[in-house]
Design a protein around this nucleic acid. Sequence first.
RNA 1: GAGCCAUUAGCUCAGGCGGUAGAGCACCGGACUUUUAAUCCGGGUGUCCUGGGUUCGAGUCCCAGAUGGCUCACCA
Length: 499
Amino acid sequence: MTTGADENLDYAIDGVNDLIRARLDKMQQLRSKGVDPFGRRFDVSHKAADIVGSFDELEDAEVSVAGRVMARRGHGKVTFFDISDLSGRIQVYAKSDTVGEEQYELVRGLDIGDIVGVKGTVFRTRSGEVSINLAEFTLLSKSLRPLPEKWHGLQDVELRYRRRYLDLIVNPEVREVFVKRSRIVRYMRQYLDTHGFLEVETPMMHPIAGGANARPFVTHHNALDINLYLRIAPELYLKRLLVGGLERVYEINRNFRNEGISTRHNPEFTMVEIYQAYADYTDMMTLTEDMISYIAEAVLGTRVIVYQGNEIDLSPPWRRVTMVDAVKEWTGVDFHAVETDEQAREICIGLGIELQGNESKWKCLNEIYDAKADENLIQPTFVTHHPVEVSPLAKESIDYPGFTDRFEVFIGGQELGNAFTELNDPIDQRKRFELQAAAREAGDEEAHQMDEDYILALQYGMPPAGGLGIGVDRLVMLLTDSDSIRDVLLFPLMKPRDN
RNA sequence: GAGCCAUUAGCUCAGGCGGUAGAGCACCGGACUUUUAAUCCGGGUGUCCUGGGUUCGAGUCCCAGAUGGCUCACCA
């Protein structure tokens, strides 16, 4: 399928302008000269940054490098261009006398954005820049659209998210964030694997959406003719695995919650959930401190980080405070001294917290806590002992009746994780579900549904266990100093544009 | 879901009080055999987000809508 140089290709490209037309013309001229504008495999011997970094060993050696043309400086019979690969950039020096007229014409026709392969010898220019003296040039992919500007990069936030590939091409610091994200997850796996945890995968499509308080996405299976929910948490499946004797399991995967979008919430987000038989929430605290500081050390080389202008020390141990004490610290209100639900509601209203009007005392405590926690918890902090009422899957505390052996961990003003000693009493669990069902009846759309199948599993006996969930996106935000979750998601959810 | 702000060339941005739409980079043509935000000469490439309205005249004022950002609400 050859394309004639005079064929009008505008139909094939959306929004053709003069810049694009010029590139289409070049593409057709290349074809008519027998040069394929969209090449094939190319043997790469070195990465750009490695050549620059190992100049002493590589001087005068022949190398081949592939990458995208990011800048071009023509000087008549000599042309310099910079190519960029994942490792970095290197300059290529093309001299008409060396490469010959034919190849030199190809170099002169290069556009910023073209992907090329170059072969040549390593040398240093007069001004000291490590470069490749071009011997052989291959066009690997013609770029038909102009890239964003080299100096300011791509600033338009909407375009950055919708066309992340452009963001990655022109904004190196963005690429760095996602490389770090990959390393964070890798070291998390490494930590858990070396501590005897088994990585598992559990269903993403659930007949009952359980394990968290959230509204689910609904989908439909045609052959079975049943509705299914995209999971809001893997918790109840992972605990079935504890029943099955897997003892230490974890899963790193996506959860889906049909709720608002914000700088801290994306409808799909990544959680790691970890369960350890014969342990409790205090073991989970130790694990949290130890794992996160390990990851920081491994990825960043330090446990002292800066997040949004605050210096944060991740070295264990982290502060521990009960929820009642924390609320007392922030507001002066001691909930142990509050007698009635009405009193509690009045306190809430006095603090400017909106209520439905039927909240219990402990629900009120939780409301105040939710409203105040973020702003007050910059350094790593475990807030422990949430009321039983707001913790339907956690075991009640022995020495703190009415509260659960649970914690939420905050760092940098953001909730990062949630953990508790798992409720393994099937009778108690049924009662908790019944209370949740009642709340649901009363209009709480996020209350748990009864899950008979899960209770059945508990009836066979689940070992006592500690369970922990950590928001991976938020951990990445923390370790990359990102203030929006969209900056750590390659493709955050965006409303489609109707063209 | 609510409030505030933004939307102008491929990209980054400027456009006083309503009077023929601008710059830099990129791009096109020319010069140039070690440049590097190369330089020099010449060229402005546009659905001013969309649709209404006011006006002799709207990028600019008014109304409605779209998308995005931030804040709040909900949540992790």
